[in-house]
Design a protein around this nucleic acid. Structure first.
Lengths: 205, 205
DNA sequence: GACATTCCATACTGCCCGGTATGCACTCGG
DNA sequence: CCGAGTGCATACCGGGCAGTATGGAATGTC
């Protein structure tokens, strides 16, 4: 790869990372392409050489977010060997992200609303979330084998847990007082409780 | 009240209800004030006599949503006397709304994103949600007295349940296959399970 | 029955911002 | 060393839409 090609890629990376930062602070609509270009130290002419439209920038910024999240999640549990410990660390990382990482909250919120009206965005998030789900199912199944958690259906339990997690992220948006380490522990407990539940009672109609 | 005053109020009501309908279909940004006025059979001149800005229209539409939701919720449980039955009916109504009522999903999603960047919207939703929370706490406490559910802390349990509920609404956005009566029953069960949980284990660090 | 006020229509303004057209320096292969 | 394409900057356009200015008919008031 020539030097100019490297610089081009570097510019593109700066555009994507800067776009994510701005989107995660002000939302898609309130960030103009001029602003994104300026953040990366270039102008809109350059931006339109790398991307065909604002939508493509949003897509690239989303991809950046997905990759970053998964990388940080892996780093958070990498040092643990014990299956239950790995599960707990993953949940703690997730809760901490939901409660304390405001850019994360803003960006995902933005993705959700955008996804409502945009099929491609919806598909992208769904794929990301599918891999997150599989990640947790793997952790839970491993923890079950080592006999430290129990749930009749790991997949169902993970689905419930993920739903609760998203709800916690929402609450954090409206109740900033949740962003304390004390609350963090409580949240972690209510998530773990999903995986130590006795079989559910029969449905009533 | 004179006849013209009544007609004026009626126009305002049509504007608010129409605005909600349009917002719940296309989102705040994709709906123009001309469109809202046309939906109510008037023009923007009239709209600007009733409201000072688009933000005020959004606020009014949100109020309309809050009132409507609480009214429908009350209607859903009104016919039941047994405390446990009332709780189950409330949860079923909520789950059904999350899974099947698409306008509801779109509108609340829009409110969330808007709330991120707008303090007043955030305060409005928070107040609404506080009253929803109190409503459920009342139902749960009544059900405890009649000895059909158990939870060490009704308020904490309701918080967890509400978080899960919001997460379910989100999943429904990305997984349309969830919108079946079979899934509805499963969701109801996982929510009820929150209120029949044994005390949670001690936190691990 | 003048006159004010209410309630609404018409027409217009101005800004923001996504997208485009074009020019230009640089480098890279032949 | 020279064309060709790359990687950007500059300048401009135009559509969409919130908000305004103004007129006018109906209603209510004295």
């Amino acid at each position: 790869m020539t030097q100019s090609e490297q610089e081009s890629l570097a510019t593109r990376d700066r555009l994507v990372a800067g776009a994510f930062r701005l989107f995660a602070r002000k939302g898609f609509r309130r960030v103009s392409l001029d602003e994104i270009a300026a953040e990366a130290g270039v102008t809109k002419g350059s931006l339109y050489w790398h991307f065909r439209s604002k939508q493509e920038v949003i897509k690239a910024a989303s991809g950046y977010y997905y990759r970053t999240y998964q990388r940080r999640m892996n780093a958070a549990i990498a040092s643990a060997r014990d299956p239950y410990d790995r599960l707990v660390r993953a949940l703690r990382f997730a809760v901490r992200t939901c409660l304390l990482d405001e850019p994360n909250r803003v960006f995902t919120m933005e993705v959700f609303t955008h996804a409502v009206h945009h099929e491609e965005t919806r598909a992208g998030w769904r794929q990301f979330y599918d891999s997150v789900r599989e990640f947790y199912v793997g952790l839970v199944e491993a923890a079950i084998v080592s006999d430290e958690v129990f749930t009749p259906s790991p997949r169902d339990a993970v689905n419930t847990m993920l739903a609760t997690m998203e709800g916690i992220k929402l609450r954090a948006l409206f109740e900033p007082e949740l962003c304390s380490s004390r609350e963090e522990g409580r949240m972690l407990q209510s998530l773990l409780a999903v995986f130590t539940r006795t079989p559910e009672p029969v449905a009533q109609t």
